[in-house]
Design a protein around this nucleic acid. Sequence first.
RNA 1: GGGAGUGUAGCUCAGUCGGCAGAGCACUUGCCUUACAAGCAAGCGGUCACAGGUUCGAUCCCUGUUGCUCCCACCA
Length: 825
Amino acid sequence: MQKEVIKISSQDNFQKRYPGILAEKEIQDFWENEKIYKFTPDKGPIYSVDTPPPTVSGKLHIGHIFSFAQAEMLVRFRRMQGYNVYFPIGFDDNGLATERLAENELGIKPTDFERHEFSQKCTELAIKYEDKFKDLLRSMGFSYDFDLLYTTISEEVCKVSQISFLELAKNSQAYLKESPVLWCTFCKTSVAQAELDSKEVDSKFYYVAFKVDNEILEVATTRPELLCGVVCIFVSPDDQRYKKFIGKKAKVPLYNFEVPIMTDSGVDKEKGTGVVMCATFGDSTDVQWYNEKRLPYKNVITAHGKINEDVEFIGSLFVKEARKKISSLLKEKGLILKVEDIVHSVSIHERCDREIEIINSKQWFIDVLSKKDELIKAADNVNWYPEPMKKRYISWVKNLKWDWCISRQRYSGVPFPVWYCKKCFKPHFASEEELPKDPVKSPFSGPCRNCGCGEFTPEKSVMDTWATSSLTPQVNLSKLRSICGHSDKNIKNIKDLESDKFFSEFIPMGMRTHAHDIIRTWSFYTIVKSLYHLKKAPWKDLMICGFVLAKKGKKISKSKSNANFDPVLLIQEYTADALRYWAAGSRLGNDTFFDVESMKDTRRFITKLWNCSKFVISHLEDFEFSGKPDKMRLVDCWIMDKINKTIVKVSEFLEAFEVGLARRVIDDFFWKDFCDNYIEVVKERLYQPDIHGEDGKKSAQYASYYCLINILKMYAIFTPHLTEYIHMKGRLERFTKSPSIHMLTWEKNLKKDIDFDESIILFGKELEDFVSKVRKYKSERNMSMKAPLDSAVIECSREFKSYFEESEKDLIACLQLKKITYEFK
RNA sequence: GGGAGUGUAGCUCAGUCGGCAGAGCACUUGCCUUACAAGCAAGCGGUCACAGGUUCGAUCCCUGUUGCUCCCACCA
């Protein structure tokens, strides 16, 4: 038999069930209308947050939601500590990812347009997606101030990015150089080391016969198509087998030109035949040798991934066709001694998964290799949460092999404000006043400062998108200045900001947050830029979140196979608060799984908090919140001390960015101590003041209100809609004097071991044990919890007897006892 | 090959700065109890990866082994 709906009070605003998604919509509108999260510069000390601008490449997935949610909880915590939180959002809408989106969605090719036309189409498309992103972020209850929004393709951001470039170029920290670069022949652009992935591929080891005088020197290679580009042969210096060849010349098969045989300790005697051919360029070792040994350069592979047309046998063929052709030619001539099937890993471009080549090309670089030590030291100026993530950064920096190539032969991106003299090729830069500048659209005026020539070609490359997003602290600073009415006109150098009054307050920013996959890009590049420009750390704290993995241990990507993880649908089905509560379920930095089953837990929580609040609030009708009553019952003192202790513990975890551990502590208190024990024990005192006295009711009202409001405040960072809805519908504004739960501050000055009476917390423990013992007795006998018992024995410490006596009436009522007797432990 | 994390109940994960091993889910049993059956109470369930060492005592500290995950290197 189901119970009838119980009427709580005449003014009851509480539906039987929390209305979920409807409530969330109502609350989001309320926040927006009341501008609850609006940033106002002069409201107090600023706590600024550098949030990751998501790449506009289609959809936001559950992984974004997971890490964004964890970070946002921290932001809410800071806000409720009284900080004036600067919490912006940006979108990264320039770069290859957005180009790909435009190509796929609009069915267009960049080569069919002028650069700025194609770029324009990308931007228009990006705006469409950004609106969707915004809707989703809003519907998650993320408390950004959308007025602080920036996009990386915008003029203001372009300007910051170009200023950075000019300044680095001026200081020779950015330089133009023709040299071997990592090159994607599919995307037809240079890329940086950070954009490489690797992949295991099936391949073949060809054992090829080189001739030295009249002897055969066997060389194993996976890339016989590069024979025409061989510039040297290397053997290990202590390899006895080949001692006699050192210093001689080897004749390259098919092509019959001669190359020197040299030694290098990097050669692995065990691998292949222990003889390596060095071509320009098969891999990064070739580049290293080319640089170290000053080897000649032979142009084999073109930007389009074909063999140079002048090459005999394989000219104009794609690399893989060329490989086939060369290997069959070698076979025909009996120059292949053996072919071995192998699996080896190759570098691929993260955007297209195609194999990377190394070609000679003129590009802009930012020097990082010569500053490795400083960059490693710079890691110490930031607090890494969790700490071990710092090691990933350090190992990345240690292993860097390439300066940061920042020019991309692409379309959508920040242009380089540079023109080159047609005659002497000297680069000429735009002046800071005219930024942002697209040199393709506006010609350079004035003669060449080197040769006097009047003709120039614009730099057609655009910048790596990270060259811009590495400046988000500066972008945010610039935004702050502009909303404060300070123009950026006088800012010619990023360094000029140093004298700015906002600079010292804003930089380093309070915290940066992102998932661990972009340590080598976003963290690293931002640290590079701030080391060069600002000479200080970009942020104080760096919070690094984990990933959401699909069940198989696979990364969830944007691919369709993971459509059941679509956040929009999940919010519809389970509410944003449910997703948020789930997101707070794991430790910082740890990867997690998403399983719809886990949504059951969160639904259970939401119902519980709703019902608990309903109960407490229904007993506050005649409650006046005017300080602590004189006579507080001990049980009430206990629960208040217990929640104070909980607040301290939760704050400690949040200070360490551990939202998951923090939530667990609140859950324990809320569910066990407060709901299952405290409320049950004081219930009758609230219902029956005629039996238990008006002061007993007042004491219970005070304690239960105090706990409820603090429970709501703590949960407000996790489930902001639910807690706000309770605050609103429960008319808690009567007591809090605040329109929103999110404008309240957490209890302050609760310091560990100062504000609590430890003995009363021990008493509470014994009280809980006693309640549990009686319940167990009834449960074991299949009795109803309501069934009366003639007597029960409290086994307690002697010192707590008087405490228990004071609480006897509560216990008798709660447990339906007739008599209580005591025994001492 | 180098490094980091991790291995605790069927599942997901806490925890112990060395002292009887914890939660939620799942499962079993019972219970309508003036908030909540989307609930409550109780129960079942563990060689704390393995092997040594330190210790009165080790799941925790140390050494080694091993499984898994990730980062980096490996690309001839």
